[in-house]
Amino acid sequence: MNAKRQLLLVRLVAWAGAAAPLLWMIYRIFLGEGLGADPTAELTHWSGFTATTLLVVGLAITPVRRITGWNSIQKVRRMIGLWAFFYATIHVAVYAALDQALALDFILEDVLTRPFTLVGAAAFLLLIPLAVTSTRGWIRRLGKNWVRLHWLVYPAAVLAVLHYELGQKTDFTRAPVTMAVVLAALLGARVWLAMRKRAAASARGTRARPSEG
């Protein structure tokens, strides 16, 4: 398979994977059993979980590429990040419009007084500039600063996973723990890769190039 076709395949798989939760939800609402007695809770958990998962998957791409040498997967990282932002936007919209019934005083009180909501809101706010500057034009305009700005995806992912943990009532055993462990492993891998690169660079007597973020 030539590189072009391989890239097309990777794009297709990533796109299908990121769109699948949306298609599944549309199926459930319009053709399946519906969302049961508490549609707001269903939509909230579904969108929040999907957004956080995609953020973590997006962070996994660089380490996986370095380790496996599958360079083509780097090309879908931005798209996965945008899908994560899409689900996060649904999450916030459901919270504000349905759960809080657009009562701004309650929303403000919730965000400002409760760590659970504050952490989630902070994660979403960090993602906004990243989504806005994800176009080719902005990449060109910002140059090296683009990489620096998009480093914000790390704190955003950490806050999103923390928000997920804080939302748990009792189930600390399965998905939330898995998510936290995967995120910690990915961050560890990045640190390790950066250290190795720096060591190699200093061995060659040259300065390490700035990380690609």
Binding site: G36, A37, P39, T40, D99, A101, A103, D110, F116
Partner: peptide, 17 residues
């Protein structure tokens, strides 16, 4: 600690109003 109890959501309504 994690949410307000001032309002409630009478199911199956989607609104906590």
């Amino acid at each position: 600690p994690r949410w307000s109890q001032a309002r409630e959501k009478p199911l199956p309504s989607p609104f906590r109003s």
